[in-house]
């Protein structure tokens, strides 16, 4: 899905929602920011530096991480190994220290792991007892939590979450929303795509609405809910679906 003439600004320390009907271009925006797709025109800046045109791994290194709608976990790995892959950026000192397991490298890796564990716990996924579990056997909700924890483990300051609530029960949603708020309170910036309007409106500080690849509205949840263009877009979409 093409996106054109999109201009948006994510404020540090805020939870920013990106919504719109199916096919509005939300996933495309995520792919553009994370470098999976490259821009044909325009630029993307993060903390004043241009990140458009960089490789995905480089963008991640600069502090932007994302999760996927379909959870991408390394299925053959255990929970711990998944976290280690994500955490390796923060421990990265080059090849030699890692190969020879220098004390500094070991310490950094331990620190990264500890904070990843902490995040996992706050996201409702168990503690160290589950570190050795194969991710294939985790329940859906824990897989989602793990993918968020992995994004955090990279040391990201901006996390892009693709439908973090999809497939969760009402109670699990509540827990996740609580966890996301706590992360914001600790200074993390979150950009999320979500279909659950009630949750988006309750959680987000700012919401941007896309339709057919174009931004049709941006503002606080209250402003968005009252915006006729948004209602039109959603109703139109409902009509089309009917």
């Amino acid at each position: 899905m093409a996106v054109s003439d999109l201009s948006m600004m994510v404020t540090p320390g805020a939870i920013h929602g990106l919504i719109g009907p199916n096919g509005a271009g939300k996933s495309t925006v995520f792919n553009l920011i994370s470098g999976v797709l490259s821009l044909s025109a325009g630029e993307i800046f993060f903390k004043g530096e241009r990140i458009s045109g960089l490789r995905p791994s480089e963008i991640c290194r600069r502090g932007v991480a994302r999760t996927f709608q379909a959870t991408t976990l390394f299925r053959e790995f255990t929970v711990l190994q998944n976290l280690l892959v994500a955490a390796h950026l923060r421990a990265a000192d080059g090849l030699a220290p890692a190969l020879f397991a220098s004390p500094a490298y070991r310490r950094k890796e331990r620190e990264a792991l500890a904070s990843a564990q902490e995040n996992l716990t706050s996201l409702g996924l168990g503690g160290t007892a589950q570190a050795g579990r194969s991710v294939e056997k985790l329940p859906h909700r824990d897989q989602k939590a793990l993918s968020i924890a992995m994004a955090l483990a990279t040391g990201a300051e901006l996390v892009l979450l693709d439908e973090p609530l999809a497939g969760l029960t009402a109670q699990e949603r509540e827990e996740t929303l609580g966890a996301l708020r706590r992360l914001r309170d600790r200074g993390l910036t979150i950009l999320l795509v979500e279909h659950d309007m009630k949750a988006v409106m309750g959680l987000c500080d700012v919401v941007t609405v896309l339709d057919h690849g174009v931004r049709i509205a941006e503002g606080t949840p209250r402003e968005i809910q009252e915006n006729p263009a948004v209602i039109e877009a959603y109703l139109g979409a409902e009509d089309a679906r009917a």
């Binding site: 994370s34 470098g35 999976v36 490789r55 995905p56 791994s57 480089e58 991640c60 290194r61 991480a65 994302r66 996927f68 991408t72 976990l73 390394f74 892959v85 994500a86 390796h88 950026l89 992995m150 990279t154």
Partner: peptide, 9 residues
Amino acid sequence: DGAALQGVN
């Protein structure tokens, strides 16, 4: 792709 998004070069 997933590995790249976790910062793996």
